[in-house]
């Protein structure tokens, strides 16, 4: 952990925060065009964390205590990891018109819809980061991990094949719609080195 903190020193953290802020601005802008509504993306804070620390931090937050549907959008390339999106499915019916669905919405439609939102959210945020840092990233189809569970349960049951990850928490809110979603962007340890290299290049250019 000490070594990791050294790696992500203050300069690099500042640079990354700047990159992320710009990326969120772009993502919010594009998504607003896509949905034709004002989109609010929270400015993410990131932290390096292991699974226990993460679970503890999530369990402490009110918004993660409700039952949620958990979706996963894996990405690979120079940036590698997973975007975990959490939906409180009671708000998803609102999405149908926004996502261009006509007629009755079945459970399958609803699932595809939240998968789309998951992939849009992860893609929009990550593409912005990747393009600023000139890193390549590609995506695999998103999937539903679990339906209706608490997020703390999810992290005990599942993904234990990582020791440390760079975690960013981003909240998406659509104005005038009761819809919101939380995303946890996990950058795998393998991405740390290439990420730091690119951040250093960026810092050198200043």
């Amino acid at each position: 952990m000490i070594k990791l903190n050294e790696k992500f020193n203050e300069d690099r953290r500042d640079a990354l925060q700047e990159v992320v802020n710009i990326a969120m601005g772009q993502a919010g802008d594009s998504m607003a065009k896509l949905f034709d509504t004002f989109v609010e993306l929270s400015i993410p804070k990131f932290h390096v964390s292991n699974i226990d620390q993460l679970r503890e931090s999530l369990a402490g937050k009110e918004e993660y205590r409700e039952k949620m549907t958990v979706l996963r959008q894996p990405f690979s390339g120079e940036l590698e990891g997973e975007g975990i999106t959490l939906f409180n499915t009671s708000g998803t019916h609102e999405l149908a018109t926004l996502m261009g669905y006509e007629g009755e919405i079945t459970l399958n439609n609803e699932r595809e819809m939240i998968l789309d939102v998951c992939s849009i959210l992860v893609g929009a945020c990550l593409n912005g980061i990747a393009s600023q840092l000139d890193m390549s990233v590609s995506y695999t189809a998103p999937s539903v991990v679990v339906a209706n569970t608490g997020i703390a349960d999810f992290f005990t049951a599942g993904s234990t094949n990582w020791s440390y990850a760079l975690v960013m928490e981003i909240r998406l809110t659509l104005e005038q719609h009761s819809f919101s979603s939380n995303m946890l962007l996990f950058l795998a340890e393998d991405s740390f080195e290439p990420l730091i290299q690119r951040l250093d290049i960026l810092l050198d250019e200043l």
């Binding site: 261009g100 399958n108 595809e112 593409n127």
Partner: peptide
Amino acid sequence: AGSGIEKKIKSVFLLKNLAFTSWEYR
């Protein structure tokens, strides 16, 4: 038409995203 595909295509154009359909849901 009218089943979310237009939005998928639009999202790819706008966000340089990938969009998917899966046999499970469609």
